[in-house]
Design a protein around this nucleic acid. Structure first.
Lengths: 209, 209
DNA sequence: CCGAAAACAGACCAAACGGTATGTATAGAA
DNA sequence: TTCTATACATACCGTTTGGTCTGTTTTCGG
């Protein structure tokens, strides 16, 4: 495995991610990517069979790092607390810190972007995106179920619904954040969701982090 | 004002809306639109100076009908109840009925789509989208403020935050709905948000519709 | 240090793109 | 009926697009 080639490939992927987040998939041309990544056309088509191939690899690469990031934050929260509710609240506050990081200005979710441009893509990529979103949701379902099992909710609720609501609120927050160009919007949605959880599980004890 | 021309123009706008919701702005070519709308290139460029001009007019046309629709649902809810909380819950259930209407398969929000492709557009269009989203949010802020003034919330909360959370939850619901291709997702998010409101304002009376 | 595979560079291409030019049909006011 | 502005239709144009082809450099095991 040569290192040089993998480095270029990652340069291309990163450049494409940045461009796609601002211009969409169809709105990003191969020449745009070459300029942004500083590679030649030959290099590009050496690593990717086509633009569609790049799109697919980008999606899988993005999903991999994305899910891994969430797992890490959750693992830290689980290590810090015993009660699943405390773990959850810790996860959310840590996630808010991540969201409020002033680096990487144009925040966004590539799954969201994808769903609004899905006509250009193959069916197996559609399935992959749906599966990835489900994996992401499943992570939360598990945790919410633990909370529900331990603390009686003030109103009947399912773990699945709570998980889906959290994902929705984050996705929607990103859209508002982009539209208004105010950095804190998504984190605020997470906060607001925490408030909901605290109302929903009033018996859950709250400890200092 | 001749009727014939306006009719063709609306045909083009409707066709573009349908295409854009599946392929994005950049991913929809003028020829695509001509095919979908069944008009000639001459007709198209008679009504629109450029593709960018169409994009702007489409956005304004969409925003107009969109906001009007929300105002109508809210007006009906306000006519049906006296208590702002009842009005709000009625509004949400009516909105859920609208969302669950099996017509118009590919649901989506053009503002969301826009924010993920905004690099192609002019600044005044960016401002217009932001303003429209703010108008939409402001509608809810007013109503939430009335509720807060009348019923003490179980946890301190601002009308603005609640309004933004609702918009977020709907936008996010649309994304999940598109990704999973299950029609009820967005309506479920609205339901879940209603649950939150009922926990937040426990003193609010609930009447039968 | 050699040879072969990987990694690149850049000229080139056909098709699709947004847009124009020019001509024709049509509708309504005078 | 005639005049004129609107409403189209279509051939055409320059540019950009995704992709190919050919040739050169770099890398690395033997």
């Amino acid at each position: 495995m040569s290192r040089k080639g993998d480095l270029s490939k990652e340069r291309i992927l990163k450049a494409t991610k940045a461009l796609v987040m601002r211009k969409g998939f169809a709105g990003t041309s191969v020449d745009d990517i070459l300029r942004e990544a500083g590679v030649s056309k030959g290099a590009f088509f050496h690593h990717f069979r086509s633009k569609a191939d790049l799109t697919e690899q980008l999606m899988r690469w993005y999903a991999d790092t994305d899910i891994r990031m969430f797992r890490e934050i959750l693992a830290r929260a689980e290590a810090a607390h015993d009660d699943p509710m405390d773990q959850l609240l810790q996860f959310l506050t840590d996630f808010e810190v991540y969201l409020s990081d002033p680096k990487q200005p144009p925040r966004g979710c590539m799954y969201a972007l994808y769903t609004y441009e899905d006509d250009h893509f193959e069916n197996d990529l559609k399935e992959f995106v749906a599966e990835t979103l489900q994996t992401w949701t499943a992570m939360y379902i598990r945790k919410f179920q633990e909370v529900i099992d331990l603390h009686t909710p003030a109103k009947p609720v399912t773990a699945k619904r709570l998980a889906e609501m959290f994902v929705s609120v984050i996705e929607g927050g990103l859209i508002l954040q982009r539209a208004y160009q105010v950095p804190g919007m998504t984190a605020r949605q997470s906060e607001q969701f925490r408030d909901y959880l605290e109302l929903l599980f009033p018996t859950a004890t709250r400890k200092a982090a």
